[in-house]
Nucleic acid binder design. Sequence first.
DNA 1: GTCTATAGCGGGATAGAC
DNA 2: GTCTATCCCGCTATAGAC
Lengths: 208, 208
Amino acid sequence: MPVKDCQTEKLIIDTAMNVFFAEGRLYATTQDIADAAGVNRTLINYYFRSKDELLAKVIQKAHEQFVSNSDAILISDLPFREKTEQFMDDFMDKLRRFPYLESFLTVDIIQQRLSKNSVDRFPKEPPQPIQQYLKEIGNEMEAGTIPKSNPVHFMINLVSLMIYPIIMRPLQMRLLNINDTEYDQVVNERKQIILGLLFPETINANTK
Amino acid sequence: MPVKDCQTEKLIIDTAMNVFFAEGRLYATTQDIADAAGVNRTLINYYFRSKDELLAKVIQKAHEQFVSNSDAILISDLPFREKTEQFMDDFMDKLRRFPYLESFLTVDIIQQRLSKNSVDRFPKEPPQPIQQYLKEIGNEMEAGTIPKSNPVHFMINLVSLMIYPIIMRPLQMRLLNINDTEYDQVVNERKQIILGLLFPETINANTK
DNA sequence: GTCTATAGCGGGATAGAC
DNA sequence: GTCTATCCCGCTATAGAC
């Protein structure tokens, strides 16, 4: 199998993902990325036409990595509670690996709404696995397993409770007056806390 | 009372707050702000030494406006449940007025951790009203009104559930495949949804 | 206090040699 | 494919006239 081709392109993409999403250098220039990758800056223009196209590729790849596992989990035939827990485990693993990804996406989307010159980052079509999961949420609500509401609330609650404590960590540490080790401890407790909120009748259930 | 002095300085600050936090032009330049304010660009350097100092002033003023009411609510002697609801009402009002403030703060704090050259945006000391509220949360947990955990979880849950749906609105609309009017409807339902999560025993309680 | 003019840099992109 | 050299632009900041 061919291993020789497009090593540099892949190197640049992987390096950019690391710089942006893992190190959190959201304003990194093409020079910064080239330096981090150990390649000449003009190669970025050679492989990708512009910085904007590099960004689109990087976001696209991150998105693919992000949904590859979770989509499989969401469309599996696991029971709802187990499916939700596996989704959370997978999601929080990725949050740990790329803690700045969501912040990056936030500002990138905001900017795109205003600029109109950049290339699209996401597919236009709504992802089916999420649509299916939303239906299952509705079923659970009908069955009385979880409180009844618009199913999107459950989804919004789930991701809000996982993501926000990660992206606002520096601010929360100041406001709540706790240090890094204490916040780490809090983060480690999040899964059980969130499950307790989302499945109020099963607060004391075992996780495995 | 003096109304004549420092009108321009105030105008610049208010305009900058609007551009950054209300319009969401996170990358706005000093020229953009000057244009929006209808003043000459160099006046920004005259009143504030640099763009960074303007940012610090703008964030500081936004922070003051943000905590002025909420601090009074948090240190009041209202019962816990009513205090929490008033805090939420006040908080969500401000989120509606400055929907991009939290996103701006997020990236600003991330950048500050890496740059080290910018002036401080926040006071170093932890805010007392939050400390007092955390104690009250602990009391409620002892009394069994709300599920027991580290009180900071309750606080993190509360703000996560309010803020995240606002700042990630564009992405969530795509993922959940819903339009603006539907999302508005969801946002309007959030308060009751959040109360139902945080006060599991009182899901059906009236709000007023 | 407000303006014009200008300095200066940093970043993105391209041409062209190898 | 990879490099050097260069162009060009946008942005911040400052000097200096009024």
